[in-house]
Amino acid sequence: MAACSGASGSAVVEIESVAEVSPSASVPALEGVAQTRGGVSLIAFERGLWLFGPTTSLQPDADGRVDRASAWSSTMDFDADDGLGPFEMATDAAGGPAEVLIKTAEELAFEAAGAELEPPARVRLEPLGAARQSLYGPVLVYYAKSRVDGGSGGSGGGAVGSSVAIWNAVELGAQRPVFDPAAPEPTLLFLAPEPAYGLAPTLVDGAVHVWACTDRQVEVPCTLASVPAGEAFERDAYRFWTGAGWSEAIDEAAPLFDGAERLSVHLNGFVDLWLAFYAKEGVAVVRSAPALTGPWSPELPVTELEPGAHSVLGHGELRREAGALEYLTYVRPSPEDPAVEELRLLELRLSPS
């Protein structure tokens, strides 16, 4: 794969080379999976945690299901220069992928009532991003909630909102706090059509910063919110970047750049810049900025992707050589069986210039 450079004077970060790690094999984060989305990662509970969105298994579980709203896997391998693994995929009582987020009794009742409809009623709780609440604290898992109304022909339901869960111990899973028992959506902080804040959560100077990238078909404007880490579960504590400062009014949030519905953002100390990785029109791209609030550079093409590839994400915890080497993953159809997707791993060498 060939690295690309931006227009003269426009690209703040430069990439010397791009190479696929272990090109003969995919990263085996999810054994037995046919399709998945995402793959955000972090180090927590003394292991590497990898969280995925909607996932389809190769074989039905004990309940005859192949679909999950999310899945997660873990590894003790933190050195990506020769690939990653082995991974241990979490499974549930039915033998399928274990979902990252636990549904409420009301959500389970909604699914049970529409289980015989076509399509069946479903509640989707998809992880958007995860970060430690403090250096050694629990994990905050931001997620989006959507719904499929059973028997609607696929046209009912849609986005419901977004929120945050807390993961205190790996064996317990992420717990979703109830903020207002009397509310129609007691576990959500943001309600559609508000932007679904929760992408690329980052802890900086005691505050968690999260992104929302809203798909408007032609553009996907990305806005930024900040909240003190100890107040991440308080909706009124969130502030939104307006371009000139922080506001408590969500409708004053100003787009910082045009991105994608999935992206990663982390600081690279080697070039002392924030890097945002995502996919745009079949190309893995990166933007850079001296601060989370910008100014953000134009898109720098990293490498072209295979047809059908998606979910380009950076993994800051895997950086090597003080950040001179960055690692990206993306999901693509398998060359052997296009109906089965695989997770690929890329190594980027950054230029100190």
Rank of each mutant, 00 (worst) to 15 (best):
E46K: 04
E46T: 06
E46P: 06
R47H: 11
G48S: 13
L49N: 10
W50I: 07
W50S: 05
F52R: 02
G53E: 04
G53W: 00
G53L: 03
P54W: 01
P54K: 03
T55S: 00
T56Q: 11
L58V: 10
Q59N: 11
P60S: 04
P60E: 05
A62T: 12
A62D: 12
D63G: 08
D67A: 15
A69I: 08
S70A: 02
S70P: 07
W72C: 03
W72E: 09
S74A: 15
S74I: 13
T75V: 09
T75L: 09
T75M: 08
M76C: 12
M76V: 14
D77P: 10
F78E: 02
D79C: 15
D79F: 08
D81C: 15
D81I: 15
D82F: 12
D82G: 15
D82I: 15
G83I: 04
G83Q: 04
G85V: 08
P86A: 01
F87T: 11
F87C: 08
E88D: 10
E88W: 10
M89S: 13
M89K: 15
T91S: 14
A93P: 11
A94G: 07
A94R: 10
G95V: 00
G95S: 01
G96D: 07
G96Q: 05
P97C: 00
V100L: 05
L101P: 11
I102H: 05
K103I: 04
K103Y: 04
T104E: 05
A105E: 11
A105L: 10
E106R: 02
E107S: 07
F110N: 06
F110D: 14
F110T: 07
E111T: 09
A112E: 11
A113S: 12
A113T: 14
G114I: 04
A115N: 13
E116Q: 12
E118R: 09
E118Y: 13
P119I: 06
P120G: 13
V123T: 14
R124I: 14
L125P: 03
L125G: 02
P127V: 03
P127F: 02
A130H: 02
A131L: 03
R132L: 05
Q133V: 12
Q133R: 13
S134Q: 08
L135I: 14
L135N: 14
Y136R: 14
Y136S: 14
G137K: 09
G137N: 05
P138K: 08
P138F: 03
V139M: 07
V139N: 07
S146L: 04
R147E: 04
R147Q: 08
V148E: 11
D149I: 11
G151K: 00
G151F: 03
S152A: 03
G153T: 01
G154S: 09
G154P: 12
S155G: 09
G156A: 12
G157D: 11
A159H: 13
V160L: 08
V160T: 06
G161Y: 00
S162Q: 13
S162C: 09
S162H: 07
I166V: 11
W167I: 00
A169K: 06
V170R: 10
E171A: 07
L172Y: 11
G173W: 00
A174N: 02
Q175S: 15
R176V: 11
P177Y: 00
P177G: 00
V178N: 13
F179P: 05
D180P: 12
A183C: 05
A183T: 03
P184A: 02
P184T: 05
P184Q: 06
P184L: 00
E185V: 09
P186C: 06
T187Q: 09
L188V: 06
L188H: 03
F190V: 03
A192W: 05
P193N: 01
